[in-house]
Design a protein around this nucleic acid. Structure first.
Lengths: 183, 183
DNA sequence: TTAGGTTGTCAACAAGTGTTGACATATCTC
DNA sequence: GAGATATGTCAACACTTGTTGACAACCTAA
């Protein structure tokens, strides 16, 4: 039993690592199995198939930001902490990376977009209050992640943590202070 | 000869449409051929293979922004025009969408990232001057595109053109006015 | 030990991939 | 017209994909 849990967790770990970073369709079960040093057939046994494994990697993700933040200021603190500390250099890709890699996939795109809306946009909207500002706020988080992680600019060295945090806060502030047409 | 040009252009059109929107690996040559109403084998004949077709779709893209803009203000005007008018609702996906869909692909990711840097980031840097502000500027363009096109939020209606333009300018202004550590 | 359930291994499957070459048909040049 | 070239059609190739079932190895309980 303990051994089975072990291989299950290994598959979950490498499945999340690969499927989140590179996307659902491009990554094959054999690649995941090889990375986990486990037979391919065991994926279908434990998770019922490729989709089952992907769903399992999504199960405990998307911690609700609204559970921890009550004001835009607290939200900025939380996001800063989330973006600056956790995902930088970590082996497990961030949720943002998962969204960017899978939001357009033929098989899982709709599911991912719905999940993003339900567990990410909706809680943010509850705190921020205005749809336009919420969308801008999300675009800041996603955009900065794209530039830093998705598009690795050769001659743009990774900024220091302090610099990165300053840039992030500057842009979040701008998003939250948007006061034009809020449709 | 005219007929060959016709099928070549049909393949190029649908190839760009599908490969840019959904990414290189997930889209098969048979899907493209079917969309273009052309035999699969002709892709390899005319373009030498899948990679050749992809390269062909990239050939005339990435018009150099620096050729038209000389100051950050002109750049903002240009980008506003580019983002607000051209790609909204168009059948051919935008270059931004192409970047987001392909920057991580195993086969074409490096090529796309290099191209992005060479034809997109470098010209922007030449105008803006500061790497940090340039990166933030890019993150605005990419981030807003992600939220609007990559992630289609069900209850976030597409903003009017005027609203969209106002939001875009607001965020670009914020990126260009960043005055923190510029490393 | 025996019986039973869990866990892992292996081979095969149907379907889909990019690519190639043989062949047929059309189009143009002389 | 005849010959040559361009263009399209079709079948097959080697390979990879996700999935399944048969079988062996292991551990636990009676």
């Amino acid at each position: 039993m303990t051994k089975a849990l072990n291989t299950r967790e290994k598959l979950l770990f490498h499945g999340r690592r690969l499927l989140w970073a590179r996307g659902y369709s491009p990554v094959s079960l054999r690649q995941i199995a090889k990375a986990a040093d486990v037979d391919v057939a065991l994926i279908s046994r434990y998770f019922g198939g490729k989709m089952g494994l992907f769903d399992a990697t999504l199960a405990d993700a998307f911690d609700d930001p609204s559970a921890l933040a009550k004001s835009p200021e607290q939200l900025m603190d939380l996001m800063t902490q989330l973006f600056v500390t956790a995902p930088r250099g970590g082996e497990t890709p961030s949720v943002v990376r998962m969204i960017l890699s899978n939001a357009h996939d033929d098989d899982v795109g709709e599911k991912v977009r719905n999940l993003t809306h339900e567990k990410f946009y909706a809680p943010l909207l509850a705190i921020i209050g205005c749809p336009a500002r919420t969308a801008l706020f999300m675009s800041v988080l996603l955009g900065i992640s794209v530039v830093e992680k998705t598009i690795k600019l050769p001659d743009y060295p990774a900024p220091s943590t302090a610099t990165y945090e300053a840039q992030l806060r500057h842009m979040m502030q701008a998003a939250l202070s948007y006061s034009g047409e809020t449709q």
